[in-house]
C-alpha cells in the first residue's frame, strides 16, 4: 500500500514539476531555432543544434563588457559589505559597553528602513558626488547590504568562544591581528553563506541599475536584457538566447554553492 502511494505521488508531482519548469524549457529550446521555426512550433524540439543565435547575440550586443561590469560590481560590493559587516560584528563582541548596546539598537532601525524610503536622497547624494551612472556608484549603494551582513555575522560570532580571543590578547596580539588571523578564519562558514546570498542579490538586482545607470557601457547584465526587449521584440529567439547567456553564470554559481544556501536558510530563520 505504501508503495502504491509513492507511485501515485510521483505520478502527480513529476508532471506538476515539469509544468513549473516549462518556461525554462521554452527559453532553452528556442535559442536553437530560427525565427520562423519559433513562430510555427514554439514548444517543439529544435530541428538541429543551430548556434547562429548565440554568435549573433555576441556580435550585436556588448555582452562581454556588461558581464565584466556585473562581475566587478558584484565582487567589489560583496567584499566591501562582508568586510564592513564582519568588522562591525567584531567591534560589537569584543567589548560589551553601554555604547555598544546603544549602537546595536540603532542598527536594528536601519534594518527596518526600506530602500525606497532612502532612494531619492541617495540619488541626490550620488548626483552631488558625480557617481550617478558609474560602477563605483553602484558599489556605494550596495554597501547598504553591510547591515544585513553585520546581523548575520554577529549572530554567528556570538557562538565563538571568548576564551580564544582572550588567549590571543594574552599572547600580545593587537585587535587587528585578532580580527584578521583569529576571528575571520573561525567565522568562515557564515561569511560564505552570507556572501552567497549577497552575490545573488547584487547579480540579480534590477532596481538599482535601472535607476542609476543610463549609459550602455555601464550596464549590468540584467539591465542589458531589459533594454534588449525593445530591440528584439520581434526576434524572440535572439531574446531567448540572450536570456540563456545571462542566466548561465548564476545557475553555475548556484549549483556549486547550493549546500551553503539551504544551511543559510535555516540559520537565518533560526536567528529571525
Amino acid at each position: 500500500m505504501n508503495k502504491s502511494r509513492h507511485v501515485l505521488t510521483s505520478l502527480v508531482m513529476v508532471p506538476l514539476a515539469a509544468l513549473v519548469a516549462v518556461p525554462f524549457y521554452y527559453i532553452v529550446v528556442n535559442t536553437f531555432k530560427t525565427h520562423q521555426e519559433t513562430a510555427t512550433s514554439p514548444l517543439a524540439l529544435p530541428s538541429g543544434l543551430r548556434l547562429d543565435n548565440y554568435v549573433e547575440v555576441f556580435e550585436t550586443l556588448p555582452v562581454l563588457q556588461n558581464l565584466l561590469n556585473t562581475v566587478i560590481v558584484t565582487a567589489a560590493s560583496v567584499t566591501t559589505m562582508l568586510l564592513i559587516g564582519a568588522m562591525g560584528a567584531f567591534g560589537m563582541i569584543i567589548r560589551s559597553t553601554r555604547f555598544n548596546t546603544w549602537f546595536g539598537a540603532l542598527m536594528v532601525l536601519a534594518f527596518l528602513v526600506p530602500f525606497q524610503a532612502t532612494l531619492l536622497p541617495l540619488y541626490r547624494m550620488l548626483v552631488t558626488a558625480r557617481l550617478v551612472d558609474t560602477l563605483q556608484g553602484l558599489v556605494v549603494l550596495y554597501a547598504t547590504g553591510a547591515i544585513f551582513c553585520y546581523f548575520l555575522i554577529l549572530g554567528y560570532m556570538r557562538t565563538v568562544p571568548t576564551e580564544i580571543i582572550e588567549a590571543a590578547r594574552l599572547d600580545g596580539a593587537g585587535p587587528l591581528r585578532i580580527f584578521w588571523n583569529v576571528v575571520m578564519p573561525l567565522i568562515r562558514p557564515i561569511l560564505i553563506t552570507v556572501g552567497v546570498f549577497q552575490t545573488m542579490w547584487v547579480w540579480n538586482d534590477f532596481i538599482i541599475p535601472n535607476v542609476f545607470i543610463s549609459s550602455t557601457g555601464n550596464r549590468t547584465l540584467v539591465l542589458l536584457v531589459y533594454s534588449a526587449v525593445g530591440q528584439f521584440s520581434v526576434n524572440w529567439p535572439m531574446f531567448m538566447t540572450l536570456t540563456v547567456i545571462v542566466l548561465i553564470p548564476m545557475v553555475i554559481f548556484f549549483v556549486t554553492m547550493q549546500r551553503f544556501i539551504v544551511s543559510g536558510l535555516v540559520a537565518g530563520g533560526v536567528k529571525g
Binding site: P23, W203, N204, V222, V225, Y226, L247
Partner: peptide
C-alpha cells in the same frame, strides 16, 4: 535562482 526581472521579461 535567476533574476526575477529577467523572468518577468520572459513571461
Amino acid at each position: 535562482i535567476p533574476s526575477i526581472a529577467v523572468l518577468g521579461l520572459v513571461w
